[in-house]
Computed example of a mutant assay.
Amino acid sequence: MKTLYDVQQLLKKFGVFVYVGKRLWDIELMALEIDHLHESGVIDQASFAKAKLVLDREHRIEERREQEKNNK
């Protein structure tokens, strides 16, 4: 699992489709859904950790994009 798309595909396996309309919010909601799946014991620790790392990275990237957009 290396990309946001991979995380989306993992969530899709469990019937979770996330689209709020703003990429940053989508990432945050995906993180919550991954947390819930892990707490429920549906996904293993390795998948959980990889998904969280991808989501953290994407969240940082998106925050940086928004900051740059607001600074212009």
Rank of each mutant, 00 (worst) to 15 (best):
R65W: 10
V18Y: 01
E66L: 15
V54Q: 01
G15K: 04
K52C: 09
H36E: 09
S47F: 07
L37G: 03
K12Y: 07
G15M: 03
R65F: 12
K72I: 14
K69I: 11
M1A: 15
Q67T: 11
R64A: 15
G21V: 03
K13W: 04
K69P: 02
M30F: 00
H36N: 10
K50R: 12
M30Q: 07
E33D: 03
I34W: 00
Y5R: 13
I43T: 04
H36A: 12
Y5H: 12
F48G: 01
M1R: 09
V42R: 12
H36F: 09
L11I: 05
I27P: 05
G15V: 01
E68K: 15
Q67Y: 14
Y19P: 03
L29Q: 05
R65E: 09
L10C: 06
H59G: 13
E63F: 07
R60D: 12
R23S: 06
Q8C: 09
R60G: 06
E66T: 09
M1I: 11
V7M: 04
V16Y: 10
E62I: 04
K52Y: 00
E62R: 05
D26Q: 00
A51C: 05
D26F: 01
K22W: 00
L11S: 07
L4H: 06
R57H: 13
L53M: 13
E28I: 07
F17K: 12
M1E: 08
R23P: 05
